[in-house]
Design a protein around this nucleic acid. Structure first.
Lengths: 347, 347
DNA sequence: ATGAAAGCGCTAACAC
DNA sequence: GTGTTAGCGCTTTCAT
């Protein structure tokens, strides 16, 4: 229960009858210390349950062994899993995680700024940065400012000039998904996505149509938040609008799950009446009824690469030349909601 | 980027033509500074894009405005949501989160120890602690050690002597769930849980039987990990064992979802052949088909209370007398998987 | 092999 | 109002 006196290296030194320099030496495993001395020091350490002040140390050695991670949210399984992978990988390398979420507030860009600032002030050795903010002018100014800090930073799913980037090939992922739908015979495919899920997905949706010489119906495109609620609402409005569509590609699985629900409520069968495919492949996707066809992101690999990259940037002193772009392939996971399996079976 | 020179309060002072003390004053918003001076300092600050070293500051003021949070995992939506709520609440109070997960490793107790240690070394102002470790002797020794550090710490869903505790009334929650099943006419109810989800849930399962003068069949009890995979496996074995059961209460929703899957694979209808109820009420629960009846935990309230409590402990200097026990009620959410709704409809 | 002393970047008396 | 100075708890020369 903290017996009043705050214990520091000084107390330990006194107890062991040595100078603080010596205690520091055994603390850091330096050699050239008489075993007997080392022994006394170690005894004193356990006696006092002494734990060196990492903060004071980091002021001198100029490394905090702490990394800042900024993610939009944690309540979306996709981000939660990524955060977990990152924490774990960082830990094996001796780093501890400082974590902030940005999308839990109305003004997420402001929270992002404040979070990065908090990281900088806390002297993190590096930052892993993902965001939900669009690329407006205020955002660009912000990224410029970040770079001025000179802290190693790697951007995830974010195209930012002059810093390391790791991202998924969402253009490919989305194209694969929509092409699959087209090959299944669908000609009126809706898209429910939004500015908040990467714009490449919408682009992929469009490209797939173009490649197949098919027109894109703008009225079948809905943009909004990357949530279950939005997916539900968007699908409901689509149905009520009376527009014709037999398939829908969703910007992420949460949206797709919401759409599935709305479809069921409206009495439309999936995949018979409308085929749906999502994006991310979160666990829920496979539990859904019908099981959701979706685009799988290699979250674990991406997470591990993210930490490899920050660590590399830290080692190389954040040399800008070192900044790399790594892109990961997406894979289409065909389950029941797209109807492919049903068709195969009935052939 | 980073033009070589590391800029500190000194550079700013020189630029503004004042002493570092003055810069410090404007930084901390102290009054009694000539507006013109303040102005020059502020200009110098933005010119250099200066951000004061929080770490150096905290050495003097003895507060880091950082809280350590230890959760078992993030890939379980329950914990992810809790972490998100906590981060958000902490942030509004000016704190930043240091986060560690413990169950991502084989030896979770060891990681827990190391994580707490990392928090202490990084001079967190307080700790929010939840765990997945059972209460063995090694664990007790550990909690004793934690307390010796003298850092404000609040335990979540954990009965630890001498520290603030926030927990859910899982005995009540589990009893409600099982009583519900019993009232629906079930007499052979299985339990799939484990040492890792709080033992109160198993106790509640037993108590509900006792209250209704019903026997508990030990062969219907399976213990293991709190995962989807375990739920699936356990249910499968239960079915293969040929034992009679018409209902099952699961230690958490992930387990229940796994059981649901196994039941479906085996061709048993839910709720007609077997009724199932889960625990937590994660989002997935309501998406499942049939929608899962479950026990809802008030995650948001618990999360907010957790931070209120650490903050309180910090203010009061962690006076042990101040340590409180707050318990939250659980509420049964009746959906489709228990059959209650079907029955009502068919009556 | 070990001690003395000079900082790391900042805040908080204490002076003027 | 503002500058000077003494630390915070530690690491690291530089002596001895």
């Amino acid at each position: 229960m903290g017996n009043g006196m705050k214990i520091t290296i000084k107390e330990v030194a006194k107890e062991a009858g040595v100078s603080i320099a010596t205690v520091s030496r055994v603390l850091n495993g330096k050699d050239g210390i008489k075993p007997s001395t080392k022994d006394r020091v170690e005894k004193a350490i356990v006696k006092y349950n002494f734990s060196p002040d990492h903060i004071a140390r980091s002021m001198i050695v100029k490394e905090s062994k702490t990394i800042g991670l900024l993610v939009p949210q944690l309540s979306n399984e996709y981000w939660a899993t990524l955060a977990e992978v990152i924490e774990e990988a960082l830990w094996t390398h001796g780093y501890t995680l400082l974590l902030c979420t940005s999308s839990t507030r109305d003004d997420s860009l402001q929270k992002e700024k404040a979070a990065i600032h908090s990281f900088i002030q806390r002297k993190v050795d590096g930052i892993i940065y993902s965001t939900s903010s669009g690329a407006n002018e205020s955002f660009l100014e912000f990224t410029e400012q970040i770079k001025r800090y000179g802290v190693p930073i790697v951007a995830f799913d974010q195209k930012i000039q002059g810093m390391s980037q790791i991202y998924g090939d969402h253009l490919q992922g989305a194209m694969d998904a929509v092409k699959h739908l087209i090959q299944l015979g669908h000609r009126n495919i809706a898209y429910i996505g939004g500015p908040l899920v990467s714009p490449e997905r919408e682009l992929g949706y469009r490209n797939a149509h173009t490649i197949h010489d098919l027109p894109v119906y703008e009225q079948l495109i809905t943009r909004g938040e990357p949530t279950f609620q939005f997916g539900y609402r968007a699908m409901r409005e689509l149905i009520e609008s009376g527009r014709l569509f037999t398939g829908v590609f969703c910007g992420n699985d949460l949206i797709a799950l919401g759409a599935l629900q709305a479809l069921e409520t409206a009495g439309r069968r999936v995949p018979e009446d409308v085929a749906v495919v999502g994006y991310d492949d979160i666990h829920m996707a496979s539990f859904a009824k019908p099981a959701l066809t979706t685009v799988r992101q290699p979250i674990a690999e991406m997470g591990r690469t993210l930490v490899e990259q920050v660590l590399l940037s830290i080692e190389t002193g954040n040399a800008p030349q070192q900044s790399r772009h790594l892109v990961f392939p997406m894979t289409l996971v065909v389950r029941e909601s797209c109807g492919a399996k049903t068709r195969v079976r009935t052939l």
